[in-house]
Simulated scan of single mutants.
Amino acid sequence: MATVSIREVAARAGVSVGTVSNVLNAPAKVSPLTLERVHEAIDALGYVRNDAARQLRAGTSRSIGFIVLDVSNPFFTDVARGAQHASSAAGFNVLLGTSDHDRAKENAYLDLFEEQRVQGVLFSPIHTDDELLDRLHRRGVPVVLVGNPTDDPRFASVSVDDTAGGEMAVAHLLEQGRRRITMIAGPAEIRQVAERTEGARRAVAAVPGATLEVVRTPSLTVLEGRSVGQELAARRGEDAPDAVFAANDLLAVGCLQALTLMGGTRQPGSIALVGYDDIDFASATVVPLSSIRQPKELLGRTAVELLLERVAAAPGTPATHHVFQPELVVRESSTKGV
């Protein structure tokens, strides 16, 4: 990854290296006009302050940046664990940040990683078609998109076929004789949620008489799943679903809690339930949870391998894209019901 030196900034701005240093460290000592000239040079050249160079003589560190959407979600914890194992084996460390679906946090972590001169960035972005990725490409930062498939030759990617996963989950519920399906789906702008919903629609469309109700939640958490589960448990007759597909296991666990603990006069076993991700405690819930399994640690390991390939590749080399297939794990929540 080519870097711009402080001397190049000074030359472009027509000032001394010391003046550029003052702009970065003591701007009060510099006139407004000079500040403007130096900042224009910094922006034009794409200069990034090299804090790591204060400790390392090399121009790059032995670190990889990784931005996930939500580190509290066990799915991302497992993906990060796989990335850390692969990085350690190659002599690197992983610097982990969570965006919490906040664009400002994404920007802040990218700035931090560039300052640390990371070898590259593993990135689960909120949006894949935005200026953040263009900015990283312009600055020569190798990027691997994690969980976001792309055909963009500039960025490698690792992902799971979430459309197939959503279709697989609902097809299983339909095979159990369920026909009134409710999907607890998080924000539609999350690509994984949109694709899982599309897969669910395909499965329902293939079975005459089957219906799909999509209930949106503002986030993919246990509390949101519990809230929807309480509302579903209160329904009666034809208004009540006979099956629920949750967009992730956290939503499914929350729904399961509501259905088992707050179900009122609802008939036990009347609702079949399937989650997504197969997180570690899916099998240990009060009714073991059926789920769509993703190869979580494999995603992390493969992402690091692709990133190191990108670091070593010649400029212009097309990126590699891996799409893994999900797997249905059947447990009591979908066969015996909740």
Results as ranks from 00 to 15, higher is better:
D43R: 12
R37F: 04
R293Q: 05
A240I: 03
V170I: 12
S16V: 04
E114M: 05
D100N: 13
E332H: 04
V329F: 02
L261P: 15
T60P: 09
D278I: 03
V48N: 05
R202T: 15
L273H: 01
S99N: 14
Q325T: 14
L96I: 08
G147K: 04
A203S: 14
H322C: 08
H101R: 15
R117I: 04
L289K: 03
L298K: 10
Q116K: 15
C255K: 03
G300F: 00
F281I: 11
D43K: 12
R49A: 06
L289H: 03
G177W: 12
R202E: 12
R310W: 01
G46M: 01
V48D: 05
Q84L: 08
T265S: 12
A52H: 12
R310L: 11
Q294F: 11
E167M: 13
F75K: 00
F113A: 09
I184D: 01
D239Q: 10
R191M: 07
A312E: 12
G18K: 11
P74V: 13
M168H: 05
Q325H: 15
A44S: 13
V160R: 02
E189Q: 14
A108E: 10
V228P: 02
V207H: 10
V20A: 01
V9D: 02
N22V: 05
I67K: 06
A246C: 13
D111E: 15
P142K: 04
P268Q: 11
S124D: 07
T19D: 04
L45S: 03
D277Q: 14
L273P: 03
K336D: 09
G46V: 07
A194L: 11
A210F: 07
L259K: 00
G46E: 10
L298H: 14
R310I: 07
Q230D: 13
D111M: 14
D152M: 08
R54M: 15
D102M: 00
V338G: 04
D51Y: 08
H322G: 08
P315H: 10
T317P: 00
A83P: 03
L95G: 12
G254D: 03
H137W: 12
M262Y: 14
T265F: 05
N22S: 09
I184E: 01
V20F: 06
P142R: 05
Q294V: 07
D152E: 06
A272N: 07
M262G: 15
